[in-house]
């Protein structure tokens, strides 16, 4: 069965996709398509999200209680499920953001160590 390569990719996107979704929803409620586009736009098209992978992540976040989905109507008068950040989702986002920042800091200080004489 073709499960193996898929799992590898999920491993890669797993945590960060959740975080990205939560971050996007901080602007306000959005539907799946909106979330995907928003991630792409704000990352200046650097991050290409495979739209399909969004949906399992959305289910997981709902089960964790970090987001809530409700049916509504879009600007174009189209029916869609709009996701909204919950209080615990906000807390989760804060925690993940700080962890992410520390991670980035750690990685970048390894990748480009500061020169001793220029030290601050």
């Amino acid at each position: 069965m073709a499960k193996q390569p898929l799992q590898d990719r999920i491993e890669l996107v797993y945590g960060s996709l959740d975080m990205l979704i939560l971050r996007t929803l901080l602007w306000g409620p959005a539907h799946g398509h909106g979330i995907a586009q928003s991630i792409e736009r704000t990352s200046e098209e650097m991050l290409k999200v495979e739209h399909g992978s969004l949906y399992p992540a959305l289910q997981r976040l709902q089960q964790e209680g970090w987001i809530r989905g409700d049916w509504g109507v879009s600007k174009n008068n189209q029916r869609a499920k709009f996701y909204r950040l919950t209080a615990s989702g906000r807390r989760q986002l804060a925690a993940e953001t700080s962890r992410w920042e520390r991670f980035v800091q750690a990685v970048s200080s390894v990748m480009s160590p500061a020169e001793p004489e220029e030290g601050k």
């Binding site: 495979e50 739209h51 399909g52 949906y55 289910q59 997981r60 089960q63």
Partner: peptide, 17 residues
């Protein structure tokens, strides 16, 4: 194309439950 494997996404989402 943009979406990827539709059936798989649906199945995986369902399996989440």
């Amino acid at each position: 194309r943009r979406f990827g494997n539709v059936t798989q996404a649906q199945e995986q989402s369902r399996e989440m439950w």
